[in-house]
């Protein structure tokens, strides 16, 4: 085990190991071959190692990247298609939603589409309205797709390897704000996968459940530290890791323990993944008398170019902390979680 591996290196190792393990795995996308090695260098070195037939630079054609990936997948290949930004996947929506996700069904189970669509994106880099969106909810809405959004290098590598081995089309959404984060990852060649559809409790707590994924998980952990220090509130942080199918069992188990839920993501709050989770938890926990649920998400506005305006639109640690405090106050719970909360309230 190495304890300080970059997320981008963990992702590259996953691709490298799966290509070495399985001849059928090949990569396709814009600018992914050497010397460029991908706009974010995730595929750097792989075309040199495996040849340009297995790491294919393609024309700027998102429809054809996804569509040809679908075609290759049904012949038994295991294509990993890179779409440079999740925003550009909009161009290929029909191929993703009505083709990749439907062909198993429309063929009566005769054909399967083991296609991974890697894309990256997200706010926080002043990349403006067309290069910063968190569009996971669009794919979350589609039966037949899986949507994976890791938060740590360990999870990223294990989930990408699992996605490549999965027989369903998988949207593998890498948040670019995480590419330079570091964390423990097993040694190269030590084969492990992280199962799709399983959440991970990144921090245990008894007072409130914070459900997050991708970079928001890191903000949730920071929020939890702050809440512990300033309020004496012990937050449990559930990292979904896979957004669809999401791990209802783990979320509900945590919620039944804490009785309070904050679902947090950087995607627009309206119609977001958080809305589905909040509603489901509410429906499933009707037997609980004292239930508090809140959502944190982006404002219903395009992502501004100006950095100080972008910060207003996109939530992070502070918004999670505020949502937890509001939720617990609404539920009259601060008395239950200690004097520190009352002191904090008095100090404000």
């Amino acid at each position: 085990m190495r304890d300080n591996v970059l997320m981008r290196e963990a992702l590259r190792e996953a691709l490298d190991e799966e290509m070495a393990r399985d001849e059928r795995v090949f990569l396709m996308g814009e600018d992914i071959a050497d010397p460029m090695g991908g706009s974010y260098k995730i595929t750097l070195g792989l075309s040199t190692k495996y040849g340009k037939h297995r790491v294919r630079n393609t024309p700027i054609s998102e429809i054809a990247i996804v569509g040809a990936g679908v075609g290759a997948a049904i012949t038994g290949m295991r294509p990993v298609a890179e779409i440079m930004y999740v925003d550009f996947l909009e161009v290929a929506m029909d191929q993703v939603v009505s083709q990749a996700a439907k062909i198993r069904y429309m063929s009566g189970g005769q054909l399967s589409v083991p296609l991974v669509i890697r894309c990256q994106g997200g706010p926080g880099r002043s990349a403006a309205a067309q290069h910063s969106q968190m569009l996971e909810a669009w794919f979350f809405h589609v039966p037949g797709l899986k949507v994976v959004m890791p938060s740590t290098p360990y999870d990223a590598k294990g989930l990408l390897k699992a996605a490549i081995r999965d027989d369903n089309p998988v949207i593998f959404f890498e948040q670019n704000g995480l590419y330079n984060t570091r964390g423990p990852v097993p040694d190269p060649g030590e084969d492990y996968t992280v199962p799709l559809g399983k959440a991970d409790i990144k921090r245990e707590g008894k007072d409130v459940t914070i459900v997050a994924y991708a970079q928001m998980t890191l903000f949730a952990l920071q929020a939890a530290e702050q809440l512990a220090k300033e309020d004496g509130v012990e937050a449990e942080v559930v990292d979904l890791r896979t957004v669809s199918p999401w791990d209802k069992e783990t979320v509900l188990r945590s919620f039944r323990k804490t009785g309070a839920l904050v679902v947090a993501h950087q995607a627009v709050r309206q119609g977001g993944v958080g809305a589905e989770i909040a509603a489901t938890v509410y429906e499933e926990a009707l037997d609980l008398v004292d239930v508090e649920i809140a959502r944190v998400g982006a404002k219903f506005a395009p992502t501004p170019f100006a950095p100080h305006l972008e910060r207003y639109v996109i939530p992070g640690k502070d918004e999670i902390v505020a949502a937890v405090r509001t939720t617990l106050e609404r539920g009259g719970r601060f008395g239950a979680v200690g004097q520190a909360a009352a002191q904090r309230a008095g100090a404000v």
């Binding site: 054809a64 040809a68 990936g69 075609g71 290759a72 049904i74 038994g76």
Partner: peptide, 14 residues
């Protein structure tokens, strides 16, 4: 039409 291109690739690779 894009599927056909991909099926063609897959066949060639196999």
């Amino acid at each position: 039409i894009p599927h056909a291109a991909g099926i063609g690739w897959g066949l060639r690779r196999a």
